[in-house]
């Protein structure tokens, strides 16, 4: 059996959404690779529910390394465990979410195993004739897409960008097996020790929101973002910002979109009072639909917008909000 390993990243008691996205993708890869099965790798304790959910999300087997020392992510311990289980079970493919944690961990594991690792992939396929994993990723700030393979070394490793692959809806009737791996962590030097976890003061859902209503310098101040927030809420989305708005202190940098902020790919991106500098556009160009509202008809944002409105955002945004509200009211009646 060819094994496709998926690392299940946990945030507190729950799995990071990217883990389910990877299981969904791994399932699809397994369907194109004869005699293969999908293994979810879970580290920690009291993860029985996560294990169960992994099966309902597409895993054939769950390898559960149950150990008190693995409750928190500590890089050198996680590395040791993953390297050892890869050596024991010899998977063909090993997928890890391209979160900050996942990228650190994958870099350590792949080096120790002396195999290839492709970072931050946005596409994965099995080449039918060669049975190899083709990994596609953006480089040069998204200007170039490269497809990479790892023909001879095993496992073929990739980190995969969150929010790109589709997760499977949980199917409680799916069958699978949970293997509790007996594993004791050897005595090791204490390379790194967590003293304190500091959660973020603002939590934005930018990376996952289906709609992002973003504001730039044209918003004019922190109050202006309230109008954007209202529209975003109505659409079930999140707000975003240009660096200029963040630098002006109008909004937290958790909301910044672009080269030095987040790269996002919502279904709908509405840029309000954003000129469309290249460093901003690289972060949004994979959006399905881009709408721009700007007073300057020559603003470069219109070159990438599917629909452009030349106008004052302070008038246009509330007009969109009230139109939508009116329509919803009618539907309800």
């Amino acid at each position: 059996m060819r094994k496709i390993f998926v690392f299940v990243e946990r945030v507190d008691g729950e799995a990071h959404p990217v883990s389910w996205e990877l299981l969904g993708k791994a399932r699809e890869l397994a369907n194109n690779l004869e005699e293969s099965e999908v293994w979810a790798i879970v580290l920690g304790k009291e993860c029985e529910n996560v294990c169960k959910e992994a099966i309902s999300r597409g895993a054939d087997k769950v390898l559960y390394v149950k150990n008190d020392q693995l409750v928190e992510y500590v890089n050198y311990k996680y590395k040791k465990v993953l390297v050892d289980i890869v050596r024991k079970y010899e998977p063909e493919i090993f997928l890890i979410g391209a979160t900050l944690e996942g990228r650190e961990l994958a870099g350590m594991v792949a080096t120790e195993l002396e195999t290839g690792l492709t970072a931050d992939c946005t596409g994965l396929d099995i080449l039918p004739d060669k049975k190899l994993l083709a990994m596609t990723r953006p480089t040069f700030g998204g200007n170039l897409m490269a497809t990479i393979m790892c023909p001879e070394h095993r496992p073929q490793m990739a980190t995969v960008r969150p929010g790109v692959m589709r997760e499977l809806p949980p199917d409680p009737n799916r069958k699978g097996e949970v293997i509790v791996e007996e594993y004791s962590i050897p005595e090791m030097e204490k390379f790194i020790e967590i003293l304190e976890a500091v959660p973020l003061s603002v939590k934005s859902n930018l990376a996952y929101a289906p709609v992002v209503v973003a504001g730039g310098k044209g918003v004019g101040g922190p109050e202006g973002f309230e109008k954007l927030r209202e529209l975003a809420n109505l659409l079930g989305g999140e707000i975003g910002a240009s660096r200029a708005a963040v630098k002006a202190g109008w909004i937290s940098d958790e909301y910044q979109v672009g080269q030095t902020g987040k790269t996002i790919h919502p279904v709908l991106y509405i840029a309000c009072g954003i000129s469309g500098a290249i460093q901003h556009v690289v972060g949004i160009k994979e959006s399905e639909i881009i709408v721009a509202i700007n007073t300057d008809e020559n603003a470069p944002i219109f070159d990438v917008a599917d629909i452009g409105i030349v106008g004052d955002l302070h008038a246009v945004v509330p007009a969109i909000t009230s139109k939508l509200k009116a329509m919803k009211g009618e539907v309800r009646k």
Partner: peptide, 13 residues
């Protein structure tokens, strides 16, 4: 250091 879920204060050898 920064991780996705927040910051983490650590002792590094």
């Amino acid at each position: 250091r920064r991780l996705d879920r927040g910051y983490e204060k650590v002792r590094v050898k």
